Simulated scan of single mutants.
Amino acid sequence: MIFVLAKAIPKDEEACEKIVEFAQDLIENSRKEDGNIDYNLYSNTCDGTLLFVEQWESKEILGAHLQTEHFLTFGKNIADLVAAELDIAVYEAEATDL
């Protein structure tokens, strides 16, 4: 299983609202993709930071997601709304017994 944590820092409150609005289409369509396990957006109300938390079945499926129209459109739509490039971390996990 692949986990993605993608942090976006909006330029201001208005930019934050627009990013969240654009994210709705991204989230809805990403959840429909084969191999997507979970796709959510969380907001830190203290500083406005947005955090996408995603789960995918494999790196190959994640790679295909990165080429989808909804993903590419989202990136174009928010390019001028973020204070810095998105901070993206990708982790590979496997199940273990407790």
Rank of each mutant, 00 (worst) to 15 (best):
F22C: 08
A23L: 01
Q24F: 00
Q24T: 12
Q24I: 02
Q24C: 00
Q24V: 03
Q24P: 00
Q24M: 06
D25L: 11
D25K: 12
L26R: 05
I27H: 03
I27Q: 01
E28R: 11
E28T: 08
E28C: 03
E28I: 04
E28G: 00
N29I: 01
N29C: 05
N29A: 02
S30W: 05
S30V: 05
S30N: 04
S30P: 05
E33I: 07
D34P: 11
D34C: 07
D34H: 13
G35E: 09
N36I: 05
N36D: 07
N36M: 09
N36L: 09
N36E: 07
D38Q: 13
N40F: 02
N40C: 03
L41T: 01
L41C: 00
L41W: 01
L41R: 02
L41S: 01
Y42D: 00
S43W: 00
N44M: 09
N44Y: 08
T45N: 13
T45K: 11
T45W: 07
C46M: 14
C46E: 15
C46S: 15
C46F: 15
D47S: 14
G48V: 08
T49G: 12
T49F: 03
L51D: 00
F52S: 01
F52G: 02
E54P: 06
E54G: 07
E54S: 06
E54K: 07
Q55Y: 10
Q55P: 01
W56D: 08
W56G: 04
E57W: 06
E57S: 12
S58L: 05
S58V: 04
K59P: 05
E60K: 10
E60Q: 12
I61A: 09
I61T: 13
I61V: 13
L62I: 05
A64T: 04
A64Q: 13
H65C: 04
H65T: 05
L66V: 01
Q67G: 01
Q67P: 00
T68S: 09
E69S: 10
E69C: 02
E69Q: 12
H70D: 05
F71H: 10
F71D: 02
L72I: 10
L72N: 11
L72F: 03
T73L: 07
F74Q: 05
F74H: 09
F74E: 06
F74L: 06
G75H: 10
N77F: 02
N77L: 14
A79S: 15
A79K: 15
A79W: 03
L81Q: 10
L81R: 10
L81F: 09
V82F: 08
V82C: 12
A83P: 06
E85I: 02
E85A: 14
D87E: 15
D87C: 08
D87Y: 07
I88E: 12
I88Q: 10
I88T: 15
A89E: 15
V90S: 11
V90A: 09
V90R: 11
E92V: 13
E92K: 15
E94Q: 14
E94T: 14
